[in-house]
């Protein structure tokens, strides 16, 4: 026993080093797992507040651009509204889809685009009805999925995350694919598992797929930029340009599916 203590005393530097590195690796490997970021959760409020101070300052410099964007979106919504009100009075709801989803506006307080795993923090949380697994969109296209919520803030796994996988569909052909972020460039994503017979043109629109429990169908994702054929005749890949500009992301909407609990209970049965 005495020897052991003497050994520890002698090598305390190396032992402490190994201990700390083991802690780091453990934390790191735990955070590889999507939804178990316990450390993040507890500190989210403090971190969120500090980020909000920072972005408050930055927001003043972007006021003009933000105004323009909001005005543009207003115009678009007005246009859509006129379509709705022009039809006969009893068909206010264009289709059923609009009734399932509720949109919660939020502001981005922190955003990263140059890591291998990017996260976004927004200034709405549990008290505003945000829950994990809700989808997040910007006026231009999809943004990510809520991973963690504290009372006033929420962390979003950005599309720019090496683990992010989203089912997508090509607008013209209705064929499905899987969107991943393997390009490490914030402008581009990679759609994989594309059937070989499908001919894609540059500029083809990519939308969210129909089988997602998270994203509503037919949301804008991006446009095809470049296609790659695999030599073995397997499934093809295509590089797409995101319609959302992640570098200037400010205003986003969290989409709440009003039937989530029902869907979940159904899903739990298989």
């Amino acid at each position: 026993m005495l020897n052991l203590i003497r050994f520890i005393q002698k090598n305390h530097f190396v032992i402490l080093f190994i201990l700390l590195e083991v802690i780091c690796i453990l934390l790191l490997s735990r955070s590889q797992n999507f939804h178990k970021q316990a450390v993040m959760n507890t500190t989210n409020n403090v971190v969120g507040r500090i980020y909000e101070w920072g972005s408050d300052v930055g927001n003043y410099f972007r006021l003009k651009k933000t105004n323009e964007q909001l005005a543009e979106e207003n115009a678009l919504l007005r246009q859509q509204l006129s379509v709705v009100t022009d039809t006969t009075q009893n068909t206010y709801l264009i289709n059923e889809r609009d009734t399932i989803y509720e949109y919660i506006p939020a502001q981005v307080v922190n955003n990263s685009i140059n890591q291998a795993k990017n996260y976004i923090i927004i200034n709405k949380g549990k008290l505003d009805g945000i829950k994990p697994d809700m989808s997040v969109i910007s006026p231009d296209g999809i943004v990510g999925v809520v991973s963690n919520v504290s009372s006033h803030y929420a962390t979003i796994i950005s599309l720019l995350h090496s683990n992010s996988i989203i089912g997508v569909r090509f607008k013209t052909s209705q064929e499905l694919g899987t969107l991943k972020w393997t390009t490490n460039n914030y402008r581009y994503g990679m759609v994989e598992d594309i059937p070989t017979h499908l001919v894609l043109n540059e500029g083809d629109t990519v939308l969210t797929g129909p089988y997602s429990f998270i994203f509503p169908e037919d949301l804008m994702v991006g446009t095809v930029e470049e296609t790659y054929e695999t030599a073995s005749g397997d499934l093809n890949r295509a590089k797409i340009r995101f319609s959302t500009n992640f570098a200037t992301l400010r205003h986003v909407y969290v989409i709440k599916n009003l039937y989530t609990t029902e869907l979940d209970s159904l899903r739990a049965k298989f």
Binding site: C24, L27, S31, Q37, V39, S112
Partner: peptide, 13 residues
């Protein structure tokens, strides 16, 4: 720094 970037253990390591 990890707490801010949401990557526990990465910078610390």
């Amino acid at each position: 720094v990890d707490l801010f970037t949401g990557t526990p253990g990465l910078h610390a390591g």
